[in-house]
């Protein structure tokens, strides 16, 4: 993997850390991360319910994840694999979450739109990292050293609770956003667009179209 640069960072992530990252870098993390997705976002951002823990004191890295985990009869936690879930679904809450959490780094699947990077990430000096694959659940599971807490476990269930993990060489991740708000995913989309007309050449539109259907080749479903 000669051309790919590997970077190892320790949380909390600083402005210098973010500034030093380049799109396409391979990142591993030490320190701590927490999971938060629609369940927690809805409670905090939409319903205004205060977090029962000072999340920023634990970490400023938010992982869009539900672990494959279970809780033993004695209350102990068992975490097998962890993998990201698609981040675009959380767009409506992300700005409010930044306000509530002071997060600097979001890790997820598939990235978010360039508009969100430009308008919400860049002004806060925040960066988006994507998991690899998807997903390298076993490799990421190895990187978890300890479960610090599972916040709102009873209210939100295992999949939606805020899990706080101590981590060591947690990764790999790929840097998606940059300081200008561009996305490596979006750049890849633009790269392949030139080929698409050729692929569809001669294939007539379906006899029965679908309500609201578009045939614009640069459309995305997210």
């Amino acid at each position: 993997m000669s051309g790919l640069r590997e970077v190892r960072l320790t949380t909390p992530i600083t402005d210098e850390d973010v500034a030093g990252l380049r799109q396409g870098d391979i990142v591993f993390l030490d320190g701590a991360v927490y999971t938060a997705r629609e369940g927690a976002y809805k409670r905090v951002v939409e319903n205004g319910i205060a977090l029962p823990v000072d999340i920023a004191a634990h970490s400023n890295v938010n992982f869009h994840c539900s672990p494959a985990a279970s809780v033993g009869a004695d209350g102990s936690y068992s975490v097998g694999a962890v993998t990201a879930t698609a981040s675009f679904r959380f767009a409506k809450w992300i700005e409010g979450w930044f306000e509530a959490s002071s997060a600097k780094m979001i890790i997820g699947k598939g990235g978010m739109s360039e508009e969100i990077y430009r308008d919400i990430f860049v002004p806060r000096g925040a960066v988006y990292l994507t998991t690899v694959g998807y997903g390298t659940g076993a490799l990421l599971g190895r990187g978890i050293r300890e479960v610090v807490d599972a916040v709102w476990l009873d209210d939100l269930g295992i999949a939606q609770a805020i899990w706080i993990f101590k981590i060591e060489k947690f990764g790999p991740f790929i840097v998606d956003s940059d300081g200008e708000g561009t996305s490596l995913f979006a750049k890849s989309n633009r790269e392949i667009e030139s080929r698409l007309d050729g692929l569809y050449d001669g294939l007539k539109p379906a006899i029965l179209s679908r309500y609201g259907e578009t045939t614009a080749r640069d459309d995305e479903v997210i």
Binding site: M1, L4, I26, C65, S66, P67, A68, G80, A81, V82, T83, T85, V132, G133, Y134, G135, T136, G137, A138, L139, L140, G141, R142, P172
Partner: peptide, 24 residues
């Protein structure tokens, strides 16, 4: 790199006897 990481991930899953992906 992505595919190579997946091959490593499957090895880790078997060695550790943990799910290969958390979205099971």
């Amino acid at each position: 790199f992505v595919l190579q990481s997946m091959l490593e991930n499957w090895e880790a899953a078997e060695d550790d006897q943990r799910p290969m992906c958390a979205d099971t």
